[in-house]
């Protein structure tokens, strides 16, 4: 059967053992799901099976499944680079996708980036990485360090970094 027209549902199971059900046609956006079901290059499969996503925790997998279901109904418009705007909303015009990441905390955002990368869901990776990029745009190194919870450089390390990248201070 052709996977794109498959009406069957499968369950994705998280590290915590929680399962989330969704149509296979939506789940197959994740390459990890396609690979687990031995989907061939023509998109043909025998019968879709459930997949364990042991590297992703339950709250994050729930968000990923929410994304997959919606994407199947309304695809994310491609994010073009160079960016048209330095705000997330300026680059993602679709309201559902704007709201999808609204109000989530930093650990959850990073978990989503990691899950999208591990599950090979390109549109989710684009969306979440854009969100992180927009949070960092226009910020100083010190502000970025606070956002990312990175320890401060020693004065020697900072001097080395500035020497390495002197060109931008000369511009």
């Amino acid at each position: 059967m052709n996977a794109d027209e498959c009406m069957e549902t499968i369950k994705l199971t998280s590290r915590g053992g929680d399962s989330f059900e969704l149509p296979y046609a939506a789940a197959r956006l994740a390459h990890v799901v396609r690979d687990a079901n031995d989907e061939n290059d023509d998109g043909d499969i025998d019968s879709p099976e459930d997949v364990e996503i042991l590297k992703v925790n339950s709250p994050c997998l729930e968000k990923v499944v929410e994304f997959l279901k919606h994407y199947h109904e309304e695809a994310l418009t491609e994010i073009k680079t160079p960016l048209e705007d330095n705000t997330f909303e300026g680059n993602v015009k679709q309201e559902w996708y704007q709201n999808f990441l609204k109000g989530i905390d930093q650990p959850m955002l990073f978990d989503l980036v990691t899950a999208a990368n591990f599950m090979a869901i390109q549109p989710l990776l684009d969306l979440t990485c854009l969100k992180v990029s927009c949070q960092l745009m226009g910020k100083s190194a010190e502000e970025i360090r606070q956002i990312l919870n990175i320890p401060k450089l020693t004065p020697e390390e900072e001097e080395t970094a500035r020497r390495d990248h002197r060109w931008i201070f000369d511009d």
């Binding site: 854009l130 990029s133 960092l136 450089l153």
Partner: peptide, 13 residues
């Protein structure tokens, strides 16, 4: 997604 000024500031962290 970043321009070079933002990449530099991340690089300095």
């Amino acid at each position: 997604f970043m321009d070079t000024a933002d990449m530099l500031n991340v690089a300095l962290t």
